[in-house]
Simulated assay, not measured.
Amino acid sequence: MIGKILTSSQYGWLKLLPLFLFFLGGGAFLLHYYGEGISLALMDSGLFTVLLFVGFLLLENVFKYYKPQQENLWLALLLPLMIASLVVVTGRFLLPFLMDDTLFIKASMMIRGALILLIFMGYVLVLIVNGKLEDQLEIRNREELIGKMAKEAELFHLRQQLQPHFLFNSLNSISALVKRQPEKAREMILQLSTFLRGTIRENENEWVSVADEAASLQLFLAIERVRFGHRLEVDFEVEENCLSYKLPPLLLQPLLENAVKHGLYGLIEKVVVKLSMRKVGNYLEVEILNPFDPESISEKGTGFGLESVKRRLYLFFGRNDLLTFVRSNNIFHVKLRIPLLS
C-alpha cells in the first residue's frame, strides 16, 4: 500500500534515510562525547547533517552535467572546498541560535570544516568514478546497438539477394519454355508467384519453423520439377520431432538450388537429390547430397549460395564451422548444423 502512495522521488529520499541517520547519530555521539548535552548534540548534529546533504545535492547536480577532464581536475578539489566552506560558514552563523556555548562553537569549527571537506572530496571521487563507469557503459551499449543494426542490415541485404538470384534462374527457364511448352511455362509462372509470395511473408520473420521452411522448399521443388521434368527426383526426409524447431528463413533454399543445378548439369539420366533433417545432440542437422559429373565442365556461378549461407550462419551464431561440404565418389555432400534455440 505504501508503494502505491509514494512517488519515485520519495523512494529516492527513503534510500538516503539510513545515511542521514548515520551522520545524525554519529555527529551527535561525537558532540556528546566532547561535552555537549544530548539534546544540544542532536540539534547541532541535525543542523550540520542537513547542511551536509544540501552540499551533497549541490555537488551531485554539478557533476551530473559536468565531468572534469584530466586538464581541469583541480575543479574536483576546488568545488568541495568552496561548498565545505559555505557549509561551515552557514553552520557558524546558525549555531548560536541553538546554543550559547560560543567558545565551543569557535573551537570546533576547524575540525568540523576538515571533516566536512574530507566527506565532500570522497563524495566527489565517487561521483567522478560513477560518471566514468556510466560513460563506458553508454559507449558499450552504443557500440552493441551499432553492431546489432549493422548485423541486421547485412542479414536483410543477404535475404533480399536470395529472391533476385532465384528469380533470375527461374525466368531464364520460363523463357526457354514459352515457345516449346507454353502450358508448362504458365504453370511455372503460377508456382513462382506462389513461392515468392511465401518468401515475402517469411522475410518479415527472423526465425521460422522447420515445418514452414520445408513447405517453402516443396514449393521451390515444384518449380524445379516443371523446369527439369522427369529428370529430377528429390528424396525429402524430415524427422517429425524436428518440425517445431526454429531456423533462419530461406537458409536452405540456396543450398537445395545449388544441388539441383549442379546435380543435373552434365547428366542426362534421372538425378536423385537427397535432403534430410534430423536432431543430433543440440543441433538441427541438415544434409543435402547430389550427384555430379567430375569430367564435365561445371556451370560457372558466383558461389553466392554457399557463401551467403555461411555468412548468415556467422551473423546469427558467430561461428564458421556450421557448414561443411565434401566431394567423394561423384557425390557432393553438404552438411549444415543449426544450434537449437532453448
Score class of each variant (00 low, 15 high):
Leu6Gln: 05
Thr7Pro: 03
Ser8Thr: 14
Ser9Val: 08
Gln10Ile: 12
Gly12Asn: 13
Gly12Phe: 11
Trp13Val: 13
Leu21Pro: 03
Tyr33Arg: 10
Ser39His: 08
Gly46Thr: 06
Gly46Leu: 14
Phe48Val: 13
Leu51Pro: 12
Leu52Arg: 03
Leu57Trp: 14
Val62Glu: 09
Lys67Val: 11
Pro68Lys: 04
Gln69Trp: 11
Gln70Val: 14
Asn72Ile: 02
Ala76His: 03
Leu79Ile: 14
Val87Met: 04
Val88Ser: 13
Gly91Ala: 08
Thr102Leu: 11
Ile105Met: 03
Arg112Asn: 09
Gly113Cys: 06
Ile116Gln: 12
Leu117Glu: 03
Phe120Gly: 00
Phe120Arg: 01
Leu127Trp: 02
Gln136Thr: 14
Arg142Phe: 05
Gly147Leu: 03
Lys148Gln: 12
Lys151Ser: 14
Glu152Phe: 05
Glu152His: 09
His157Trp: 08
Arg159Ala: 10
Gln160Ile: 06
Pro164His: 07
His165Met: 12
Ser175Asp: 12
Ser175Trp: 00
Lys179Val: 14
Ala185Asn: 10
Glu187Arg: 06
Met188Phe: 04
Phe195Asp: 02
Asp212Met: 05
Ser216Arg: 00
Phe220Glu: 02
Ile223Ala: 04
Val226Glu: 08
Leu232Trp: 04
Val234Cys: 09
Asp235Ser: 13
Glu237His: 13
Leu252His: 05
Gln253Asn: 08
Gln253Thr: 15
Tyr265Pro: 00
Gly266Leu: 02
Lys270Leu: 00
Val273Leu: 00
Gly281Gln: 11
Leu284Gly: 07
Glu287Met: 12
Phe292Gln: 01
Ser296Gln: 12
Lys300His: 09
Lys300Thr: 11
Phe316Asn: 07
Phe316Tyr: 15
Arg319Asn: 06
Phe325Ser: 14
Val326Glu: 15
Asn330Tyr: 08
Ile331Met: 15
Phe332Lys: 06
Phe332Asn: 10
